[in-house]
Simulated assay, not measured.
Amino acid sequence: MELNNLGKKELVKLIKDAENKIVALDNKQFDDAYLEIAAIAKKVGLTIQELEEHGINRKLNKVKAKAAIKYQNKDNLEETWTGRGKQPGWVKRELEAGKNLEDFLIA
């Protein structure tokens, strides 16, 4: 097709036809994906809605495991530290007083 030989109306129609074709291709891509997902859901006995809810809840309900306590102040058993992040004040004070971090390891 030689664009130089087309008039304004023909070019406008060509653009509109191309835009409609792009929309149709996009819709087909979504339709194909939807049907594939629906088939997988049906195969495992679920609905697409159930899968979607699970996906949303999975992100919201992730449980982060707490790090185990690795260090404890022998003088105040409530003062503990996992060894991660900034050193708590009690650790800094004890280290400045000449003690070693190993002195507070929980056996």
Rank of each mutant, 00 (worst) to 15 (best):
G89P: 03
G89Y: 09
K86G: 07
V91T: 00
K16Q: 10
K43T: 11
I56N: 01
N61L: 05
I69Y: 04
T47G: 03
V63F: 01
N76F: 13
I48S: 05
I106L: 15
A67G: 04
E53P: 00
K16F: 07
A33V: 03
G55C: 09
Q49K: 03
E19W: 03
N100W: 06
T47V: 09
K92A: 10
V44L: 02
E94Y: 08
E36N: 07
R84A: 15
N57R: 14
N61V: 01
H54W: 14
A39F: 06
T82A: 04
D17M: 06
E78L: 13
T80Y: 12
A24C: 06
K74W: 12
A107W: 06
L60A: 07
L95V: 00
I56G: 02
N73K: 08
T82P: 00
D17A: 03
D26Y: 11
G85Q: 09
A18G: 09
Q29N: 07
K66M: 11
G89C: 06
E96K: 13
L25T: 04
I48W: 04
E96D: 14
N27D: 14
V91R: 01
K16R: 10
A67Q: 12
A68I: 07
R84W: 06
H54F: 15
Q49W: 07
E102W: 03
F104R: 00
V44M: 02
A65T: 08
I15P: 01
T47L: 00
I106N: 02
D75Q: 14
Y34I: 06
N57P: 00
D26M: 11
I48A: 15
D103C: 05
T82L: 07
G83T: 00
L101T: 08
F30S: 07
K42E: 15
K28Y: 11
L105P: 01
